[in-house]
Design a protein around this nucleic acid. Structure first.
Lengths: 233, 233
DNA sequence: GGTTCTATTTGCGCTGCAGCAATTGCGGCG
DNA sequence: CGCCGCAATTGCTGCAGCGCAAATAGAACC
C-alpha cells in the first residue's frame, strides 16, 4: 500500500484524529503492513506486546480465553480500530487474541516508534484516552447487562448493538447483519450457551421478529420488537 | 490542606507520576478541596462531567444503577484513585455514582484546568492511558469471571481480590479486611443475590475458612482454601 | 435498659438455563 | 450427484441459585 493510500486509511482512525495530512504522512511512513487471512490470529493472548496495530480493512473478533479453555468474546472490531495498543503502552502482555473474520490488512508500529509518535504529536495521547475510555464504558455496560439481565434480554441487546454498529437496511424495513455470526459467537458474547441462543432465535424466527434459519445471514425483521424485549424489566 | 500536604498526597497518585515537586505544586495549587462525609455522593450518575477528581483520603464505592433500579458495584477506590476523570476527558456524562464509605477528602480540577494541565505536562496524558488501561483489563477479567464461573468461585475470587488490595495480616495467620463489607455489597460485586452470598459465607464459616459471624469484620482464616476454590475448574 | 431498626440467616419451592444427546439440514467436496 | 462434515435444532433432565418470607441477632438510639 502506498503512503497516500495509508493516509486515507489513517484519516478515519479516531486514534489519529486531529493530525493534518503531513503529520499523518509521517505516521504512515513509519508503519509496517501485516496482511492477515481469514481465521488467522494477529497475536496470541499472553504474548509480550512489542507492536501496536491499527486495523485498515476487514473485521476482527477479540477473544479472551480462560485457563481452562472457555472463551469470551470481548468485542468485534472494524476498520480504524486499535488492536493491542493499550497493552503496548502499559507494557503488559496482550490480554486477548484477535482473530480475523475475513481477510484483513493491519498496520503496525513498534513500541518505541509508538512512544515516539505520541511524544511528537501529543494529540495522539489525548485521542487514546478517548478511545480507551469508550471501551471502558462499553465494558461497564456489558458487565451490568450480564450481572442483572436474563438471557433473552441480553441476546436482544447484543443483536441490536451489532445491528447498530454494522447493520444494513434490507428490503422490507428489516436490518441485515452483513457478516456471519454463529450461535456460538452470540453465546460467547452474551455469556450463555449456544443451545440457549439457538432456542431463543428459533422462537423469534417463528414470531417473525428475526430471520435466522440455519446459517443464512441474520436479518432483523421487527427491530422495534427486539428493542421492546431488550428494554422490558 | 496546605500546598505541601497536597503535594504529598499527589506524589502517591499514579495519574501524576513522574512530575517533580515543583510541577506537583502547580497542580496542587489549582485544585479545590471537596470534603465528603460517609454515605454522601461526590456526584450522580448521568450528571454532566464538569470536574475531575482525585481521592486524597478515604474509601469510595463506585456504583452503576440500571434504569430499573438494580445496582452493580463497578469498583472500590482508595487514596490516589481517579474519580470521574475519564468522563471529563471524553466529554460524556458521568457513567456511575461514587459513594463515600467513610469520611473522605477529594481534590478537584475543572475540565478546562485539567485539559490545560495535560497540555503543559504531557506525562499526565500517558499516565492516564496507563490508569484507564488498567481498569479496562480489570473489567475484562471480571466480565470473564461473571460469564464463565459459578457463584461460589466468583465470591472466592472477589474476597481474595479485596484481601489483596486492602487486607491486613491478623494474628493467627489470617487476613483481615479492615472495612465493613455487607452481603449486599458482595452480591453486587459478584453478580448474585445477598442470600446466596450469605449462604456461601455461612458454609465457609462452618468449615473454618473464613470468620464472618454477623457483621463483625471479615477475617479470612485459610486463604489457601479460598484460592483453591477460586481456581478449581 | 429497653425498644426499634436494619443486616443477616436460613428454610422452601420454583424455574431459568445449562448439559447431554440424538437428529436434522446445509454447504462443500470428491 | 451423492457423500461427508459441521453447525444448528430440539427434546429431556437436572440443578444452581433466585425469590419469597419468616426468624434472629446485633447495632443504634432514646
Amino acid at each position: 500500500m502506498e503512503t497516500p493510500a495509508r493516509i486515507s486509511v489513517l484519516q478515519r482512525v479516531p486514534f489519529f484524529a486531529g493530525l493534518d495530512d503531513e503529520q499523518l504522512g509521517t505516521v504512515a511512513r513509519e508503519a509496517h503492513e501485516v496482511p492477515l487471512k481469514k481465521e488467522e490470529t494477529l497475536f496470541q493472548q499472553g504474548e509480550e506486546a512489542i507492536h501496536g496495530y491499527v486495523l485498515g480493512w476487514g473485521r476482527i473478533r477479540l477473544d479472551q480465553t480462560t485457563p481452562d479453555g472457555q472463551n469470551v468474546v470481548l468485542r468485534y472490531m472494524g476498520p480504524g480500530d486499535l488492536i493491542g495498543t493499550v497493552a503496548v503502552l502499559r507494557r503488559v502482555p496482550f490480554p486477548a487474541t484477535p482473530v480475523a473474520l475475513e481477510d484483513c490488512l493491519v498496520l503496525s508500529w513498534s513500541a518505541p516508534r509508538l512512544a515516539d509518535l505520541m511524544e511528537r504529536f501529543p494529540k495522539i495521547a489525548l485521542n487514546a484516552i478517548g478511545v480507551i475510555g469508550g471501551r471502558l464504558e462499553e465494558l461497564q455496560a456489558r458487565l451490568q447487562e450480564v450481572a442483572t439481565q436474563r438471557v433473552e434480554r441480553r441476546i436482544a441487546s447484543t443483536l441490536m448493538r451489532i445491528a447498530h454498529q454494522s447493520g444494513r437496511r434490507s428490503e422490507g424495513g428489516g436490518v441485515e447483519i452483513p457478516f456471519p455470526v454463529s450461535r456460538q459467537d452470540l453465546a460467547e458474547m452474551t455469556a450463555t450457551t449456544l443451545h440457549t441462543v439457538s432456542r431463543t432465535l428459533s422462537a423469534w424466527d417463528q414470531q417473525g421478529i428475526v430471520e435466522s434459519r440455519r446459517s443464512s445471514h441474520l436479518v432483523i425483521r421487527k427491530p422495534h420488537k427486539l428493542v421492546e424485549i431488550a428494554e422490558q424489566a
